[in-house]
């Protein structure tokens, strides 16, 4: 099996996750009437795509040893900016570009503060989380922006070859980020940077460029997620993305990324995002109390890291 060949070996954590995801899907298919229906699966994929894309940006930041708490607020920025531009009559394509540039710039500001101000990532992005949400509220007067063109809101409802359009966007991001992390110098440098920043610098790696690019990338991907979410919901929503930073961090961590930096994989994060969505979606279908589901997700996050630690200590 190619996936398990020496060259492209799935890590143990990923292998286990894949098995858990599949088992959960099989169980849900039998246990509920509605899980294995076209409608539910499409809905599941649409929901996961948005979180999944943010989590991929977060994975870069976490591999670099940082954290980005501002992604949820940046989703909100994207939602309001694109809605304003479209309602103002701008064509869709340039509006998307502008929204992405704005979100990328906010991410770059994070990177700049962390690199040149030596502010810990947690603090820098916590500040950005507050400030960006404030910008959203100012721009929108804390009101929903309605009246988006059909061509834009229709996109999220499109289905190609049985899959919802958002899935293809997510899939594209997965491919690009997978190649970035595993095949490029940039990817190698992020891992080295996250593992030991001083060794990376003394090996000639431009550490400032790495800091700026991971946070910019995280901003752009959050922006993309915000745009897709706006298309799906049909309105510009000022509270969009609230709390999403936690889902994104959880997906990456459950997928095997370590907050101490230097480890994490794209496939792991994708599976982590899927698992969290499955628990929520399946739980709803089984009629499990939503608060209990929240507890389950909490336990899952801690348990997966705990398990990872046990594995590491018994190995060494």
């Amino acid at each position: 099996m190619k996936l398990f060949s020496k060259k492209n070996k799935l890590r143990l954590a990923e292998g286990n996750l894949l098995v858990i995801v599949i088992i959960l899907m099989v169980i849900l298919s039998f246990a509920t009437k509605n899980f294995f229906t076209v409608n539910n699966l499409r809905n599941l994929v649409r929901q996961t795509s948005v979180n999944g894309i943010i989590a991929l940006g977060m994975t870069f930041v976490i591999i670099s040893g940082g954290i980005d708490l501002s992604v949820g607020s940046i989703v909100g920025v994207a939602s309001i900016v694109i809605a304003k531009l479209l309602v103002g009559g701008m064509p869709i394509f340039p509006a998307i570009i502008i929204a992405l540039v704005v979100c990328g710039a906010l991410g770059a500001v994070n990177g700049f503060i962390i690199q040149y101000g030596k502010v810990p990532p947690f603090i820098a992005t916590l500040g950005m989380m507050q400030a960006a949400r404030g910008i959203v509220m100012l721009l929108s007067n804390a009101r929903m922006i309605a009246g988006l063109p059909k061509a834009f809101t229709g996109f999220a409802q499109l289905v190609f070859a049985g899959f919802p359009s958002l899935f293809f966007v997510w899939f594209l991001v997965i491919i690009v980020t997978f190649i970035l992390t595993t095949k490029t110098i940039f990817g190698r440098n992020i891992f080295a940077y996250g593992s030991n920043i001083e060794a990376a610098r003394l090996s000639g790696i431009n550490t400032a460029a790495v800091t700026l690019s991971v946070y910019t990338l995280s901003g752009i991907l959050s922006g993309l997620a915000g745009i897709l979410m706006t298309s799906r919901l049909g309105n510009g929503i000022p509270t969009a993305g609230q709390g999403y930073e936690m889902d994104a961090i959880a997906s990456a961590v459950v997928g095997g990324a370590s907050l101490s930096g230097g480890s994490g994989t794209i496939i792991g994060t994708v599976l982590g995002a899927l698992l969290i969505s499955l628990i929520q979606n399946g739980g709803n279908l089984l009629g499990i109390n939503a608060f209990i589901l929240q507890i389950i997700v909490g336990v899952l996050i801690v348990a997966s890291v705990w398990y990872d630690q046990i594995r590491k200590t018994t190995k060494s």
């Binding site: 891992f191 030991n196 001083e198 060794a199 990376a200 003394l202 230097g262």
Partner: peptide, 9 residues
């Protein structure tokens, strides 16, 4: 360990 190598790589 702190300057020469990325130990977790």
């Amino acid at each position: 360990k702190h300057q020469g190598l990325a130990l977790s790589q």
